[in-house]
Write a protein that binds this DNA or RNA. Structure first.
Length: 432
RNA sequence: GGCAGGUUGCCCGAGUGGCCAAAGGGAGCGGACUGUAAAUCCGUCGGCUUAGCCUACGAAGGUUCGAAUCCUUCACCUGCCA
């Protein structure tokens, strides 16, 4: 994948364009010229608002990588400071997280950020930073005099988000100040590293332009802004929100590689082409080929398979991907699971949630669903059984009193639990 | 500081003393159809040891046989006035 580093800097904007990765940008021609002139330094920031990045964060993050491959130098920024404040949302004040929480999350996110760009000694070697490093030591007076003075309240009040919030439930001074913090990051990175481009999700446009303005006022330099579109599915829903209500996290503890793979395998036909462009490094020809396949032979779902495979490899690595694909194949077919051997089952079930149960405690299907986490509560488990959505070893179990027997155990003393079409778990049966 | 309005389940939003675990919508979940797709239709959607019990309508008290609904205090939000 790293073989195409030779791409001429000039082409990167066209590349991003056809992939649908450019939502907005400042003077495109000027940016193009600067990219051609030499190694451009750019950055994107990621706030620790959760213990892990999610799939949506991947778009700007991978864009950094695309820039790097095209001969630019990326800076990945963890928002240890901005994460303490919270970017104003469309509606409702954020509840602040404790400093310890933010620090902990920033640490974890930093580890994830490091995996998507290359750190080396070359001119395009990536840098990693945390804005707490320069914001933390700053005094209030310094901040107000050096940064605040350059911002006009009039302009800030006219921002869409601010207007909306003021019209609805109001906004705290804390959140109102967020723009200044992020803007100062850009100024800092410009001064320290000569950073001339900031990218981010399109919801960040206002914040990014704030930084552009600040650099212009203070340093008299014209730096750039470019945003990637917020990914939504064909229904306009926010992307990555359909894994049992939760987000699609990069952290395998929060979203298992299996669940991650399954999510992308299930992307609708209407979205798969767009996602391939946004999330993979496949060439235009390869993607068009896959789109053609989806259009002509949709039941093969070649696009979805490739998308899921690419993304799982990118985030979880080759090995996990192979295991996840094998697990999907072994468990998903409606074939008789008794035919699988113990090692295949062991490997496959390693990819899904598991629990250990004892046969002598006579657990019912309901107990098994709860124990494996397939159901959130006994009530939910009963409902699932009642709705005909509970399966043991690929056989529907319509009775909530059902209890497994010795003969039901698969090789390796496993029971394969399933809720609905695609939520799988393993129960390992032990004897006392 | 004063006055007025507001705070309901994951989200939006009805509900002004019993018929309220709380209308309706959305999201989610399950089923049918199909291709582990979309659309559509059906069902479901606080918890439990489920003919019952527990928790819940910003928080804490109170009135009442009985409160999301009335009263008091507190917190927060919005608007107007100072």
């Amino acid at each position: 994948m790293w073989g195409r580093i030779g791409v001429v800097g000039n082409d990167i904007l066209d590349e991003l364009e056809w992939r649908g990765l450019i939502a907005q940008s400042t003077d495109r021609d000027a940016l193009r010229r600067e990219l051609a002139e030499g190694v451009l330094t750019l950055y994107s920031g990621f706030d620790p608002t959760a213990p892990s990045l999610h799939a949506g964060n991947l778009v700007p993050l991978l864009a950094l990588r695309r820039f790097q491959q095209a001969g630019a130098r990326p800076i990945v920024l963890a928002g240890g400071a901005t994460g303490m404040i919270g970017d104003p949302r469309e509606v409702g004040e954020r509840s602040m997280n404790s400093a310890e929480t933010v620090t902990n999350w920033a640490e974890r996110i930093r580890g994830q950020l490091e995996r998507f760009v290359e750190f080396d000694d070359s001119p395009t070697g990536a840098l990693i930073a945390d804005n707490l490093d320069w914001t933390g030591p700053q005094t209030v007076l310094e901040f107000l005099r050096d940064v605040g003075k350059h911002f006009s309240i009039n302009v800030m009040l006219s921002r869409e988000t601010v207007k909306r919030r003021l019209a609805a439930d109001g906004m705290s001074y804390t959140e109102f100040s967020y723009l200044l913090l992020q803007s100062q990051d850009y100024l800092h990175l410009y001064r320290r590293h000569g950073c001339r481009l900031q990218i981010g999700g399109s919801d960040q446009w206002g914040n990014i332009v704030g930084g552009v303005e600040l650099v212009r006022r203070v340093e008299g330099a014209a730096v750039h802004a470019l945003t990637t579109p917020l990914v939504t599915d064909s229904e306009g829903r926010k992307f990555g929100k359909s894994t049992g209500g939760g987000s699609l996290w990069l952290d395998p503890e929060l979203t298992s590689p299996y669940a991650w793979y399954q999510y992308f395998l299930n992307v609708s036909d209407a979205d798969v082409g767009r996602y391939l462009r946004l999330f993979t490094f496949l060439s235009q020809e390869e993607i068009e080929e896959l789109e053609k396949s989806v259009a002509e032979r949709p039941h093969l779902r070649a696009g979805q398979r490739r998308l899921a495979e690419e993304l799982t490899t990118l985030v979880h690595g080759r090995r996990h991907t192979e295991q996840v694909i094998a697990a999907s194949g072994a468990l998903f077919g409606r074939g008789d699971l008794h035919d699988l051997d113990a090692s295949t089952l062991d490997a496959a079930l390693a990819e899904v949630p598991t629990a250990t149960v004892r046969l002598d405690e006579r657990p019912t299907v309901v107990d098994l669903l709860v124990a494996t986490g397939l159901a959130e509560s006994r009530g939910a488990a009963r409902r699932t059984v009642g709705e005909g959505g509970a399966y043991v070893n690929n056989v529907k179990v319509p009775d909530e009193q059902w209890i497994p027997e010795e003969a039901d155990l698969l090789p390796g003393r496993w029971l394969v639990l399933r809720r609905g079409k695609r939520n799988l778990a393993g129960a390992r049966v032990v004897t006392a």
